[in-house]
Design a protein around this nucleic acid. Structure first.
Lengths: 146, 146
DNA sequence: TCAAATATATTTGCATACATACAAAACTTC
DNA sequence: GAAGTTTTGTATGTATGCAAATATATTTGA
């Protein structure tokens, strides 16, 4: 009877856990985002507005939420805040009475145009510790995880 | 006068942004964590309890929070929930009247012993799409980001 | 066609997470 | 040892994020 080293896991270090590291990296990014965006939009609000301006046909609330990776409850709150600032508008669908049809306002499109360059700088600042090859590698690996 | 291609940024795609990808990858991990942990502890509660059992000398609230990457306000809530379940205990420091000295209870240590194997499985499940080399690379790159 | 399954939206409750402001205690420095 | 700074803990408000329950409307399939 022999001992198999693979049966003996090493010590459990938080720093070796993907979840712990994802949380810390995300926190660092969020700090950079909040600071550089100067409180204009949160990261989720920005993503949502960018997506809506991309599809820019009218789209339902849930469908837009899915495109940004938010569940229905979260989506409702994010859109409520965007609408309160007149960056997004909502109309009842004629064909499907459950739906609201969402679209950007001119103010929403103007704000996106202004903030996209800032968002590029935020990405640059977050990735500053990595070279070009490492950046591509990281994005590729993250994309595999979901 | 010539045109420099580096002056013309390409289109802005959310999928190329590190922040968007970090958020999605983290979400996927959290879903796996919540499901496999069966509601015993949240990811942050687990990390906090593991850290506290590692240092296992008494430690102040803020100091523990910093070791897990939480701010003071978040730390307070997390510890309140762990204490309510008798996984952590708190005593007033004699030498520093501002401080609470935190330590794990026997129930806390027992729970950690039971859950560490589950946490290993959660990490494995989250990283399932990657081979060994990719996993090491991802952890290394994430560690550079904060 | 009508019942069952789906899709959409809302609401509530709980758990991070950060900004901000505050009070008390301890430390540093001159 | 007094003044200024730092640390610790608390409280509040805002913003995700998910689970679960509810209600309504649409689509599907037997």
């Amino acid at each position: 009877m022999t001992v198999d080293a693979t049966d003996v896991p090493g010590p459990y270090h938080l720093e070796d856990q993907i979840g712990f590291m994802l949380r810390l990296a995300n926190q660092r990014h969020m700090a950079i985002f909040t600071e550089m965006m100067g409180g204009e939009l949160t990261a989720v609000q920005f993503s949502t507005l960018v997506r809506l301006s991309e599809v820019d046909g009218p789209i339902s609330q849930n469908a837009l939420g899915r495109l940004v990776g938010m569940d229905a409850a979260t989506t409702k709150g994010v859109l409520a805040r965007l609408m309160a600032r007149d960056l997004v508008k909502m109309e009842k669908s004629q064909t499907d009475k459950r739906r609201y049809m969402l679209s950007t306002t001119q103010a929403g499109r103007d704000l996106i145009a202004k903030l996209v360059p800032v968002a590029r700088q935020i990405t640059e600042e977050t990735l500053a510790p990595l070279n070009a090859k490492e950046r591509a590698s990281l994005l590729r690996l993250l994309a595999k995880l979901y």
